[in-house]
Each structure stands twice: as C-alpha cells, then as structure tokens.
Design a protein around this nucleic acid. Structure first.
Length: 921
RNA sequence: GCGGAUGUGGCGAAAUUGGUAGACGCACUAGACUUAGGAUCUAGCGCCGCGAGGCAUGGGGGUUCGAGUCCCUCCAUCCGCACCA
C-alpha cells in the first residue's frame, strides 16, 4: 500500500481498537487519574452535523495526550435520551419513543465511532435506560427525605427534623422552608394526624409539592421551566405559554443559593458562565421593612437594598398579583383596580415586555404610614413590580430609581431629594451612592453607605424590619406533564404522597395507548393501565430533562453497578471531572442544577466533592454558511455573484454540498431543481460564483454539512484536524469546508515521509542537527499548545514541521517515530498505521509521550539575563545556532539597553541581529 | 437598559509576559514536471508607490524608547439577562 488510503486504514484500526478494548479503562490503577468528559448529546433524529464533533474532537485530543503522559484516563460518552422531540414524534406516528431513541442513538454511535474517538463505550450511559433512571429515582427519594438546616448549612435527613419537632417544635429551627410555615410547639406537632404531619413536613422537604404559578403550554400539554420559555413562547416549537396555578413538584434549590454562589470561586470555569450563574442567583443585600396602613390591620412588607433612601419614599407600589392589593383597595377604587389586575393577568409576558416604555398603574385608595416621618403615602398597584421577587411590594423612591421616577412623573407624585449629590433632570432619576444624605432626619449628614447600616439598625430596633439577603433564584419546578421522562417514584395514599420503596425501583415507565394527555387533562401516564402501587395511584407527572443530566457524570465511574449508584471505591478513585467540555447554552440550566445535586449528594456523605467539574471549557457553536444563487427576476436566468448588480435578482438557497469554494456545480444544480434544468447561467471567468451568508445550520437553509460525507471524502483524521484548524475552540464560527484540502495535503505529505516511492522505508541513521531541531521545536510547541488548548496553532505547527522535514528529505526513524506519537492524538488512525509499519506490536496509545523524556529536551534558544541599574532585568534570547558575531551583537544590545535607561532608544542605536529572538525588559 | 465577549489581508486566522504584525492554511498569480491533472514541486501574494520610502490591527485620544496587546472614549457585531426594588 503506497498511497495514503485513509478508508482502509481507518476501518482497520477502528476495528482493532474495539476488538482489543484499547480504550477501556480500569478503576484500579497506580497511574494518576484524569477524568475528561463531554456534555452528552440528546440523540436527535437528524444525526450529527459537522458542528457537534467540534468539542468531542478537542476533548479526545486532550484525552489521548493525557494517556501518552501516563494518566489513567476516563473518557466516557452517553446519551441524554429523554426529551420532548422523541415524544412529539411518538404523538405523530404512534411509535414508542424508546424505539426512535434507540435508532437515533445507534446512528449517533456509528457516526461517533467513524471519527475515531477514544471513548470507553463499555461505560456508556443512557438516561432513559431503567438501569440508569433507577438511580435518578433513588436520588429523588433522597432529596425528598431531606431538609436544609441553615444553622449547619447543609441538608439533613428528614428524620432529624421529625425528632426535633417531637421534642421542641420548630421554634429553634432555622431551615429553608415555605414562607407560610407557622411556628408550632412540640405538643402541637404531636397532636397532628399523620396526614397533617406529612403536609407540614412538605414545607421543609427539599423536594416538595406546592401550589405554584407555572408556565403552562396548552399546545404541548405540559409545564415548562422559566428557561424553556423564550419571550412568552416555548423554546421548542414556539407555542404560546400562559401562567397557570397548579400543584407541582419542586426542588428547593434556593436553599443552596449561597453555596452555589460561593462555590464558583473555587472552580476553573469560564468567567462569562460564572457571571451568568451569579446573575441568575442574583444575591442582594438589604432589609425588609413593614409599613403600616392607615385604618387597616394589614402591613405592607417591602424589600429594599437602599434603606438609606427611605425618606425619599413618596408612594408604595404592589404587584397586581399580590393578595394585599385587593385587600387594600377601597370601595371607590375597586372597579378600576379589578380592571387593571384583570388586564395585567391577561397580558402575556411578551406584551408586557414590548411595552416597557409605558408606565401604567392604579391607585388603591389606601395610604401607608411612613415609619419614621409618619406621613401618609399613597399605595398604588403597577405591573412593573413583580410578584415573584422580594415581597412583591416596593417602597418607591422616585429621586433614586428610574422606574419610580417615571411613575411619579406620570401620576404627578412628589419627588423628594434625599442626597446632596443627586442631580435630577426632567426625565432622569439619580441613584448615586456618593454624597451625603439630606432631608432625612436621623440619617442626615451620613454617606449612603453609612445610612444603609444605620437605617437597618433603626428598623430592627423598632421591630419593624430586619436585615435581609434576597435572591432572584427561584425553586426549580420538577414535574412535567409528559410521557417520555423518568416516572416520579411516588404514590398517593389518602392524598398523601408516599415514596415507592427502594426494592421496587426502578419504577418502569408504563405502556400507554397514546402519548397525549387524557380527556380529563391528566398527563399521558393517566392512560396507563394498573398504574398504581397496591391499589394506590402513582404520580402521573414525570421528571424534567435536567434530572438525569444532573448526576450522570458520577455514573460513568461505575456504570454497571446494580447495588449502588456508584461504589465508594470508584468515587474515591475518580473523585470529580478534571475537564468538562460543552456548550455555554446550559449556563443556567444543566450547569446549575448539576452543581445543586452535587452539593446535595455531598451533604448526604455519598460523594467526596461538592463541585463535580474542576475545569470547564465552552466550545463555540458552529453556524451554517448558506450559499445563494441569484435568479434574475421574471426570467429563467441565474447570474454570478459579481455581476448581480446589473440585474434585479432574487437570492435562492443552494445546497452547500454542490458548491465548492463558492463555485457552483451547475450540472448538479440543474439536477436538484427541475425548474432550473433549462436555465441560462451568466458566468464570470467561466464560473458561477455563489454568494453566502451566515445562518443557523438547518435543513431548510440547505446548509447542513454532514460529517459522514467528509469522512468518506477525506477521512476522519483530516476532518478532525481540520475542525481544530478552523480557529480557537471557544469561538463560534460559521462552518466552511474551504480549506480542508490543506489539511488533507498535510497528512499525505506526512505519509510520504515514510515512503520511498511505493514502499515503506525509514532509515536507522543518526539524525542531523537540523532534523533534531525541527523535532524538538515541534514537541515543545505542541506540548505547550495542547496544554492551553490552542489546537488550531498545533495543527499549524505540524504543517510547518512536515514541510521542513520534507525539504530536508528526512526519512529517519529517530525523527519520524516521535513525530508519529505526538501526532496520534490529532490523527489517531494514520498514526496507528505508521506506528505498526514501524514495527510496533501494541497500539500507539500505549507509547510514552516523548516530550517528557529527557533525551528529547534540547535547548532551542539560549537566554542571557541582563541586569540594568541593579534593578530592571532584561533577557536576551538567541536561537541556539546563533553565531559568535551575533552573540556579540547581542552584547551590544545589552549595552544599548543600559544607555536607553538614560533616555535613549535602543532601536535607533543598533540594528538588532536576526538571530536575536527576543529582547524582554 | 444591565452584564459578558469580539473587532487584524480577498477568506479562516497567528502573534503565550508590551518587543521584526499578518505565522500556518485557503483562494489567487507566475513558473517547472507532465499525454493529461481537481497530482506534485518552486516562487510571489496587506495597502499606496517604478523606486527609495510611506501607510496599516474598528474610529479618536493617552501611557511607553516601543502598543494588535495596557488605560480612557466612541462605534459596530454577537451572546446572556431583561421592569430584580
């Protein structure tokens, strides 16, 4: 075999790796561990497109490098196989989602295997596999049986809480619980019926059932989480979403708000992701203050971060959804208020959003009493106040808050100035934290910061307020009215939820005749026959998509364990993920929930870490690059891009697979579009040039590029290297196949270094100095680049090296063998082939990484440190082959730097010799 | 509006701590070898200029002997959040 026959080579070694179980990894090893993982994909029906493997290739390269460096590498893959698309498809076709999911997974695996990834497939997980979701259900039970003790700042077993309740009630308990939890005594608790006790415990459980306002999507017949709703429409399918009150399973993620926030400081994740999580958690410090209402027993409780501005309050605002709003409405105002509340309820989120400029509100007719000045303050209702944040009520300070300001202007309310640095205009408030407080009684003369502290002390002293930390984060709704998800392991006895015992797990997803809600509006599981536990009905909703993905990374450590979700030994050895790679779109979804579950499992003493991924990298998204042909309006004529301005044209999407380097294959185009069969083509330079635009990669835009075709045409090794060559891994960019030839050429050139004509031939000669220099330089640079994940420059480095070795006509084993090893992470198939041709019996994967063997460490530059004025230091580096004259010139540079320190510019004094690589000061 | 990121040839991009800007690849041009080439090899390729030389890293300003890199400001594009009190 003389030609680089990638098809034969790739097929051969993929089979070998599989047969020899080369990538299977043991939980017992003397080597240091390295756990590197990709975010597992949802296996969609469309198969992998060329954007998916970007991150997989990068992680595979790192995994292979770590193996070469002597690590025991865990590099698994699995499938996030529960999800809405399979269910939608099932609704349309009646085909069981398990079946389509299985087919899709098989297709995915085939595509992944064709790319030569070094996954340990024996550890594959699928979230929809009962053997897997058995443990998802088990974790659910664990969370249900827990409560969060704020004093110990950790989750504890619910039995501990029951014990405390029996002894002393809940007066000394500081726990994460429902806001309406009453204080009860031990006697009260002990006098409760079992049902009452269970209902009371639900207020503390970390999984609880409560009446919540949810995003209900009538078209999908299901509840969606906030992050599945975009602009009032479902993220998938784009159906309208409305607010609705329903009893729902929720998880008390808010209990962990603070730890989720502080944990960010100890993990090496991209700053934008951390920032997004911080914003999502939204911690703010302030105070809760109660305002009395004139002629009423009710109090208005507000949350404020700026209690220093309390004397600037000239009105109060309640959210339209707030119950207080109705209670405080006087008879005079009733009609108006009801109309406003009704209107606010019916406005979709989208309407409310597009309408941020209009200030609206209505007066309740009631007045609050200012706690310090005793003044009467009118109480309004307005939809700029959100029921779900803080207390659903604000003390309005128009001089310091733009929204309050706008409202005051509209309703002609006073705008008291309370800070001597405030500069108000006709249209703008000034929220300054500079200056001194004025017009504020006991706060006068203080800085805003001091006034905040003093204000809080004062309200606490009067017993009308309390220091308070507030979070934007809400509890996570956990139930979905869907079929294709994990059944929640709960049944109901007398209306009380009870857990399905461990030995009954997994609670398998039952068969149903249709995947739609029942006539009564129950979820699809309501159609299942005998869906009960000893006659007690099972829960009908299923778990959300994030359940399985919140812990799957632990399952890879001990995938087949049927006794435990992961053995202690496996956990102890693998600990956590060293390197996690995936898209940033999961910033406030999966990446937050999985941290939450990790912290919970840590509290339970089940795992050893409270953050599961030390380092995270986000790969960029690959967008589509659409091609266009320009049809002349009203004629059956297509005009090349450069000439289109001479005509009135309409751009038409052209399948990118019949375009090469933006030149259209006219014959293929005619075949693909019958209406263009007789069309005339106006060419430039004998070619038809297409225009292009960046769009989302999708079938409808004819811009989907499939990896299979490129693997067929160029081979997996070329595709792997080309995807890396495209640019930095984190960067989003449009896919562009132009240029893949360059990488293909490189691999052929590398191949031909080992061949003399048609025969494999390397010599055992000693390498020359030049050859060694190329090799060492390459090893050094590749090692550095791989370390900082600069894989695009790595590919360039290889290309330069091969060009140099090629012009040196180098065919020596001593050079080509280590080159093969360091190339193997990038292009494993060709490396494996050459490795065996070089006479090795075992896989190149087992080779040692030459950069760490001393014989390969050779200085390629010499550095001379220079001290100037006894203080500053300069370093002059020479390339290793610099001549004596050049070094002397460097000495001159040294001298000159000293002169420059007296104010002279070295560049003007000397000519820096070429062999001086660098002067660093 | 708030937060984050990015801006360098015809294109994808390099430049790791401030030190010869444009490595490497694509496309393009010329040449060689060929019956042929969608193979291979050699050379050229930021812009202006015949030239010496000048101008160039989104615009403007600053720090520095020296700025793609640091600071200020403005502009553009992308992403995330969106009335968060």
């Amino acid at each position: 075999m003389a030609e680089y026959n990638f098809q034969e080579i790739e097929k051969k070694w993929q089979a070998y790796w599989c047969d020899q179980k080369v990538y299977e990894v043991s939980n017992q090893s003397d080597k240091p561990k390295y756990y590197i993982m990709d975010m597992f994909p949802y296996p969609s029906g469309a198969g992998l497109h060329v954007g998916h493997p970007l991150g997989y290739i990068a992680s595979d390269i790192v995994a292979r490098f770590k193996r070469l460096k002597g690590y025991n590498v865990l590099h698994p893959m699995g499938f996030d196989s529960f999800g809405l698309p399979a269910e939608q498809y099932a609704i349309q076709t009646g085909q069981h989602p398990a079946l389509t999911t299985e087919q899709n997974i098989n297709r995915y695996k085939e595509q992944l295997k064709a790319l030569g990834f070094s996954y340990d497939w024996s550890r594959e997980v699928r979230t929809s596999d009962p053997k897997f979701y058995k443990w998802t259900q088990w974790i659910f039970k664990l969370i249900y049986n827990s409560w969060y003790d704020n004093k110990q700042d950790k989750a504890r077993h619910i039995d501990d809480l029951i014990e405390i309740l029996e002894k002393e009630g809940n007066q000394n308990i500081d726990a994460a619980c429902d806001v309406d939890t009453p204080i009860i005594s031990a006697d009260e608790w002990n006098s409760y019926s079992e049902k009452e006790q269970q209902l009371f415990l639900l207020k503390y459980r970390l999984t609880y059932q409560a009446e919540t306002t949810v995003n209900w999507c009538p078209a999908l017949g299901t509840v969606l989480s906030n992050d599945e709703v975009k602009d009032g429409f479902s993220e998938r399918g784009g159906h309208p979403v409305v607010k609705k009150k329903m009893p729902q399973w929720s998880m008390r993620i808010t209990a962990y708000a603070d730890r989720l926030l502080s944990g960010l400081d100890k993990i090496d994740w991209p700053e934008p992701i951390k920032e997004m999580q911080r914003n999502w958690i939204g911690k703010s410090f302030g105070a809760e203050v109660d305002f009395d209402v004139e002629g009423s027993e009710e109090k208005i409780r507000v949350f404020t971060t700026r209690i220093d501005t309390i004397f600037g309050v000239s009105f109060m605002v309640l959210a339209p959804e707030s119950e207080l709003a109705i209670k405080l409405t006087t008879n005079d105002q009733k009609k108006e208020v009801e109309a406003y509340v009704e209107a606010a309820k019916n406005r979709s989120e989208r309407e409310r959003m597009s309408d941020t400029k209009h200030v609206s509100g209505v007066f309740t007719g009631s007045y609050a009493i200012h706690p310090f000045s005793g003044e009467k303050i009118p109480v309004y209702i307005a939809d700029y106040v959100l029921a779900g944040y803080g207390t659903g009520a604000v003390m309005a300070v128009p001089s310091g808050d733009q929204r309050d300001f706008d409202f005051a202007k509209k309703f002609d309310l006073p705008i008291p100035v309370i800070n001597d640095a405030q500069k108000l205009t006709e249209t703008e408030a000034d929220p300054t934290k500079e200056g001194k407080i004025i017009n504020s009684d006991f706060l006068n003369g203080l800085s805003p910061e001091e006034a905040m502290e003093r204000g809080i002390q004062e309200v606490e002293k009067l017993g009308i307020g309390v220091r308070k930390v507030n979070y934007k984060l809400r509890d996570a709704i956990f139930g979905r009215q869907r079929y294709w998800g994990e059944p929640i392991p709960v049944y109901y006895e007398d209306g009380i939820p009870k857990l399905v015992p461990d030995e009954e797990l997994p609670l398998d997803l039952p068969q149903v005749d249709e995947y739609l809600p029942t006539e009564d509006g129950d979820p699809p599981l309501g159609r299942a026959k005998d869906w009960n536990y000893n006659g007690h009905p099972y829960e009908l909703s299923t778990m959300p998509g994030w359940a399985g993905s919140s812990w799957y990374f632990f399952r890879y450590m001990d995938t087949d364990n049927e006794e435990e979700f992961c053995s202690k030994e496996a956990m102890k050895y693998w600990q956590d993920v060293d390197f996690y790679l995936g898209g940033s779109e999961h910033a406030t979804g999966h990446l937050l929930y999985s941290r939450f579950w990790t912290k919970f499992l840590y509290d339970m003493g089940i795992i050893e870490v409270d953050e599961y991924a030390k380092k995270l990298i986000n790969q960029g998204m690959i967008q589509g690059r659409s091609n266009f042909a320009y049809r002349v309006n009203g004629e059956n004529k297509y005009v090349s891009k450069g000439l289109k301005n001479q005509h009135q044209t309409t751009p038409i999407h052209v399948d990118v697979n019949i375009v090469k380097d933006d030149v259209l294959d006219i014959e293929a185009f005619k075949k693909s579009r019958p209406d263009a069969a007789d069309a005339e083509f106006i060419l430039e330079d004998g070619k038809y040039i297409c225009g292009w635009e960046v769009e989302k990669m999708s079938k409808s835009k004819f811009n989907v590029v499939n990896p299979d075709e490129l693997v067929d045409k160029y081979g997996a090794d070329t595709l792997r290297m080309y995807e890396m060559f495209l640019g930095p891994i984190e960067q989003s960019k449009p896919w562009n196949t132009n240029g893949i030839e360059g990488v293909y050429k490189f691999l052929r050139k590398f191949w031909s270094l080992f061949h003399n004509g048609d025969t494999f031939s390397v010599t055992e000669d000693e390498p020359t100095k030049d050859e060694l220099k190329v090799l060492h330089g390459t090893i050094k640079k590749i090692a550095e680049d791989a370390e900082r994940l600069s894989l695009n420059t790595s590919v360039s480095t290889f290309m330069i090296a091969v060009n140099e070795l090629s012009s040196l006509k180098c065919n020596k084993r001593s050079i080509l063998e280590p080159m093969t090893i360091i190339l193997s992470p990038f292009a494993p198939h060709i490396a494996e082939e050459l490795w065996h041709l070089l006479g090795h019996e075992t896989s190149v994967v087992d080779a040692s990484y030459p950069a760490f063997e001393e014989k390969y460490l050779v200085e390629d530059s010499i550095e001379y440190p220079v001290s100037v004025n006894g203080k500053m230091r300069a370093k002059i580096s020479f390339s290793a082959d610099a001549s004596k004259e050049e070094i002397e010139a460097g000495a001159l540079a040294n001298e000159t730097i000293q002169k420059w320190m007296d104010g002279k510019d070295p560049r003007k004094v000397i000519v820096v010799p070429k062999k001086i690589v660098n002067i660093v000061v």
